[in-house]
Amino acid sequence: MPLHVPPAPAPALRSVLAALGSPTAVRDARTPALRSLSGPLTPELPLPVHVWDQIATGDRPPRTRLTGWRFLIRSGDLAVAAADTVLTPDGWTFSHFFEGPYLSSTERALRQAETMTAGYQPRLLSIPALYMLTLWLHGDPTSDTDTDGPAPSDVLIPLAPAPPGIAAHRPCTVADLLPVLTLRVRPAPAAPLLGQPA
């Protein structure tokens, strides 16, 4: 079933187009692919980027916050880089270009998601405490991108490289993956001080 890719805010797209049209921004980018290509570059597949700061707090569901939009930058049929935008007090603005393993991993996860039978709204979910990025397939394709935390039935596809013990590109529901994530980020119990009973 096709994914329901949400439209990016117009100022976010304009800021990426302006950066792509700026020889200085492209030349200063730390992305060899952008500096070496001479053909047209187009931003596609905008994905809202959410951050999951707290995995779980008691019985409350996990909460996320929208922090940006990521665009895949294509040269012909090839994704050569990505561009991130961030929300500032003045609105959406270009942040930076980048390449690396998450670029191809995102494309692979999107291809996986397109083979699923249910309709989803794709988002990216960053879990800083685990240095982890996932493709988050939100079960309500029509919801606002800046609302709705992960529902238990939403699907997460961990992107490569994934943290040890978590399989990259293996789709899991939030309900199945949440206990593993919670266990991973739970602080270790403090060691007793010398002279105190254990």
Rank of each mutant, 00 (worst) to 15 (best):
S104Q: 13
S104G: 15
S105C: 09
S105D: 11
S105W: 08
T106M: 12
T106V: 11
T106D: 04
E107I: 13
E107A: 09
E107C: 14
R108V: 06
R108M: 12
A109E: 05
A109D: 12
L110H: 05
R111P: 02
R111L: 14
R111C: 03
Q112F: 13
Q112C: 03
Q112G: 06
Q112K: 01
Q112Y: 10
A113W: 02
A113I: 00
A113E: 08
A113L: 08
A113Q: 07
E114K: 05
T115L: 13
T115K: 03
M116F: 14
M116I: 00
T117M: 08
T117E: 13
T117K: 08
T117F: 06
A118G: 10
G119F: 05
G119D: 09
G119A: 14
G119R: 04
Y120W: 15
Q121C: 04
Q121F: 09
P122A: 09
P122Q: 07
R123G: 07
L124K: 01
L124E: 13
L124S: 06
L125V: 06
S126N: 10
P128M: 04
P128W: 03
P128G: 09
A129H: 05
A129V: 07
A129W: 04
A129R: 08
L130W: 07
Y131C: 04
Y131M: 05
L133W: 09
L133Y: 06
L133S: 12
L133E: 14
T134S: 14
L135D: 05
L135Y: 05
L135M: 08
W136F: 12
L137E: 08
H138R: 02
H138A: 14
H138V: 00
H138Y: 02
G139P: 04
G139S: 15
G139I: 03
D140E: 11
D140M: 05
D140V: 06
T142P: 00
S143W: 05
S143G: 14
S143V: 11
D144W: 06
D144M: 09
D144I: 01
T145W: 08
T145A: 15
T145K: 00
T145G: 11
T145M: 12
D146T: 07
T147R: 14
T147Y: 05
G149I: 04
G149T: 02
P150W: 06
P152R: 01
P152A: 10
P152E: 11
S153P: 00
S153N: 10
S153I: 08
